[in-house]
């Protein structure tokens, strides 16, 4: 099963407020797609619509289509299975208040893995894939909250990878981190794109330009423009995009 994400004519409402208007966007497999735009433009809303985290918001309603790997996200799909296939990393690192090991093992345990050896293998692989194994291998039993912010965020990525997703949604994953931690996460995300479909929401246009293959620019709930990152940043076809990326507003 593929992990291509297709969004067609999607409108999202919170109660009477329309947060997204008629968005259509194709997110190809094995690449990094960045969502950029000023605060309140709907980029995070769109991200959370893909793995249905918006279901938690009262009054949330989606019209139009979202499919992951060809399967309709809002049509009778098992939400836990969807979220197993589409992992998410949040803006603020949110490791659980338990050991590093238990954090990473949380997902596999949730999905029924009980055997000690299997769990240990999964934890090690995920921590390696998230480029944090060397830093934590000697203190897997220590509380995850003892790690630095940047380490916590990579731990959260490891935790998401341990479930075995095909796509990763990153919601401003570096906005709470210092520049060095940020660059580690960026390196990591760049490595991960070989295996995962990655969508990253970012406030930081340089970040989008540095790491993404494709960029989508949102404004006031509308998708203004999307395309290959290089093109979008060097010769945007829309005046609004140009104004935003050259820093005239936002």
């Amino acid at each position: 099963m593929g992990a291509e994400i297709e969004i067609s004519n999607l409108s999202v409402y919170y109660g009477a407020v329309r947060a997204l208007t008629d968005v259509s966007l194709n997110i190809p497999e094995h690449g990094i797609t960045a969502f950029i735009g000023p605060s309140g433009c709907g980029k995070s809303t769109l991200l959370k619509t893909i793995n249905r985290m918006n279901d938690l918001v009262e009054g949330f309603r989606a019209e139009g289509g979202v499919t992951v790997g060809g399967r309709d996200v809002y049509g009778g799909i098992d939400v836990t299975q969807l979220r197993k296939r589409v992992g998410m990393v949040f803006q603020k690192p949110n490791p659980f208040p338990m050991s590093i090991f238990d954090n990473v093992a949380y997902g596999p345990r949730t999905h029924g893995v009980r055997a000690r050896a299997k769990l240990e293998a999964a934890v090690e692989k995920s921590l390696r894939d998230a480029a944090i194994w060397d830093e934590v291998k000697d203190r897997l039993r220590r509380s995850a909250l003892s790690l630095s912010g940047g380490q916590q965020q990579r731990l959260c990525i490891a935790r998401a990878l341990a479930v075995g997703p095909q796509a990763l949604l990153l919601d401003e994953p570096t906005s709470a981190l210092d520049p060095i931690s940020t660059s580690k996460i960026e390196d990591l995300v760049t490595q991960l794109k070989a295996e995962y479909t990655i969508v990253i929401v970012t406030h930081n246009m340089q970040q989008a330009a540095r790491i993404s293959d494709r960029t989508a620019f949102f404004l006031l709930g509308e998708l203004i423009e999307h395309g290959a990152t290089e093109e979008l940043f060097s010769m945007p076809s829309q005046k609004k995009t140009e104004d935003y990326i050259t820093g005239r507003f936002g």
Partner: peptide, 24 residues
Amino acid sequence: HYYEGSLALGATHERSVFSAVVPD
């Protein structure tokens, strides 16, 4: 965010409450 983090890993509401929220 503990609850959301757990849900995002594909855990059910029940599992998220008992394994991620209650321990804290």
